[in-house]
Design a protein around this nucleic acid. Structure first.
Lengths: 108, 108
DNA sequence: TTGACATTTCGATGATTGTCAAACTGAGGA
DNA sequence: TCCTCAGTTTGACAATCATCGAAATGTCAA
């Protein structure tokens, strides 16, 4: 699980083209294939700042174990970043990565 | 399997907004989750006209049975249209549907 | 009609996956 | 220290899925 993944662009100018490996493309496709994970993404995207895990727990009718699993999948695909602070975990949508994914699909 | 699905826009003007149900969104997500199906889509999108099934058969290292299965999944998701003429089947990418899918993902 | 060919359907199989309960870890308050 | 709370890990189970071989269907030409 130690592979290159698309990370948020780092001051490369305004119109950065984020590259994406076939591997990550596939990971994202699979991550989006579970409706529950899309819901989680939707919830996260609704907020300005990072979304606390607990919020998701209130919205999604799933066990903590399952939520944790989905969070890991989304992080692994590069779609979210998880900041851990003490007991808490906060999720941020990685819009760069999502955009790179969409760009690739759009070029079909 | 008798549900409303996004169909190619029919003379609604140049900037038609294609609607999409949650159900179809989910079907498309799942259809795209299999790398093999993405490859099939990529192959189809490379051609101007409809792609004969036989062409895919040459490109994709899978049995006819499996190819047929994937074709059905893509058709069911609305991503391709299959024209059957006698013995043959020709596939066309439904760009309207793909665009509608991308639009929805982009609005996250 | 007979045979060759394109595609589909059926049945089975191995792999992946979404889910949970239970046990675990780690942080912070009393 | 002890307890509670947030989140993770583990192990299990049922469901879904990609794949195949074999048999079936349907088309066309000889």
């Amino acid at each position: 699980m130690t592979e290159k993944r698309v990370r948020p662009a780092k001051r490369n100018g305004p119109a950065t083209r984020t590259e994406m490996t076939d591997r990550q493309f596939s990971l994202i496709s699979k991550a989006l294939a579970a409706p529950r994970r899309y819901e989680i993404l939707a919830e996260i995207s609704r907020r300005q700042c990072a979304t606390p895990c607990t919020c998701l727990s209130e919205t999604q009718p799933i066990s903590p174990a399952t939520l944790s699993h989905h969070m890991k999948e989304l992080e692994n695909a590069g779609l979210v970043r998880i900041e851990r602070q003490g007991k808490f975990a906060n999720l941020t949508l990685q819009r760069d990565v999502l955009r790179a994914y969409l760009d690739r699909l759009a070029s079909l």
